[in-house]
């Protein structure tokens, strides 16, 4: 692999209770590599104390979400050339709206807990989250086959959401999208949870979630759809049919 570009990686550092700072590393990179590769090389060859989360390196696990030049990115599928020019600075920060564990690692516990709470299904029938390309549509007999859900629970949408920034109790785009994927289906507990001031009505339509989602979930559309479901359920209950 030819490392033809020179970039400066500016990485957010924070250990324990110490005040945070940035460390910079000059790095030779191949522009077609991914941002995560560059970060992993810093750890492998320059600074073994750097901590960052990662696992699958191909966007199925959702572990490596970070802010790259202030934009939420899944770093394992973000080519370096898409975020910086030769000789440029690549600033890497941990995601917002989650507590920082250390350096680029954040605690996603609240997200995972809430995803369980709303019953987001991790595998579901193929037909439920259809393929975007007509050629990729499954054969009709395969619609009941199972596949892993679109949402990889990376937390990028929550980091990007301006409402989550000011209101920690807001369930957040991924969680509301998870509730929509589960469907209300007369689930009263779920209805109470999402039909609250921490739920669907807290969204202020900035659509940042959909802009940063790396996994085709389109949380904004799902939140709007969930609102429709909530109103439907409320009307049905008002007329005693819920």
């Amino acid at each position: 692999m030819i490392n033809e570009w020179k970039i400066t990686l500016k990485i957010y550092r924070q250990k324990g209770q110490e005040p945070p700072h940035y460390d910079t590393f000059e790095l030779e990179v191949n522009p077609d590599e991914y941002v995560l590769d560059a970060i992993e090389r810093v750890w492998a060859f320059r600074d073994r104390s750097l901590t960052f989360a990662h696992a699958c390196h191909h966007s199925t696990c959702g572990a490596c979400g970070m802010r790259v030049n202030d934009v939420e990115k899944l770093t394992c599928i973000t080519p370096i050339r898409s975020v910086v020019a030769n000789g440029g600075v690549l600033k890497v920060d941990p995601m917002r709206n989650f507590p920082v564990v250390s350096d680029l690692v954040v605690d996603l516990g609240s997200l995972y807990q809430r995803m369980d709470q709303v019953g987001h299904r991790s595998v579901l029938p193929l037909g439920e989250e259809p393929a975007p390309h007509p050629a990729a549509a499954p054969a009709p007999e395969d619609l009941q086959a199972l596949r892993l859900a679109d949402c990889i629970e990376c937390g990028l949408c929550i980091s990007a959401c301006p409402v989550a920034t000011t209101t920690p109790a807001y369930l957040g785009p991924a969680v509301l999208a998870g509730a929509q994927q589960h469907g209300l289906n007369g689930d009263l507990k779920l209805l109470e949870l999402v039909d609250s001031d921490s739920g669907v009505w807290r969204c202020h339509s900035a659509f940042e979630c959909t802009a940063v989602c790396p996994s085709n979930v389109d949380p904004a559309r799902r939140i709007m759809d969930l609102r429709r479901q909530v109103i439907g359920a409320r009307i049905a209950r008002f007329f005693g049919r819920g």
């Binding site: 901590t51 989360a53 990662h54 696992a55 699958c56 199925t60 696990c61 572990a63």
Partner: peptide, 14 residues
């Protein structure tokens, strides 16, 4: 030394 499954395991074919 890292997060869960950051080496070979995370990067398996699946």
């Amino acid at each position: 030394r890292g997060p869960i499954a950051n080496g070979t395991s995370g990067r398996t074919h699946g």
